[in-house]
Amino acid sequence: MNFGDLVIPLMVGFILFYGFFKRIPVFSCFVEGAKEGLSSAVSILPTLCALCLAVGMIRSSGVLEVLADAVTPVCHALHFLPEVLPLALMRPISGSGALALLEDLFAQYGADSLIGKTASVLMGSTETTFYTIAVYYGAVQITNSRHTVVCALLADLAGFLLSNFFTRLLLT
């Protein structure tokens, strides 16, 4: 059984029961919160559209593949795995794209190979950066994100370097 399968029902059940126990109008509260969620989701649709445009274009243009090729020599010099590079570049841009690349790496090298492990660690320790930034700021109509993109990408870069480092250190 999956851990997540256990956590969610338990949490939902507990929250609802606790509310009932505290004598709050559980049903109308739920509906009120859901209404708020609905309007938030609708309000970020325009932002999502802009994001999908940018991400869709960059994915189909092949820029990422060429960029990965260009950085490969640097990777070799630092003893990092160049096979994981395309995944590292895709990860901040597209969650579904990154998952597809991860499955490719598993199929090609095996999940328990050094490449497979490094890719897993990288995938588990990073997020879809641009999606998160767009959705969070889109929901509150912030257009000037200041240093967010720089900081988030620096954290992603650190995630890539550290996942190489810690996989080698702990899993070989």
Binding site: V12, I15, I24, F30, V31, G33, A34, K35, E36, G37
Partner: peptide, 11 residues
């Protein structure tokens, strides 16, 4: 968003 918005309002 609706599901968790509802649950969290109760919480």
């Amino acid at each position: 968003m609706m599901l968790w918005g509802g649950i969290m309002e109760v919480a």
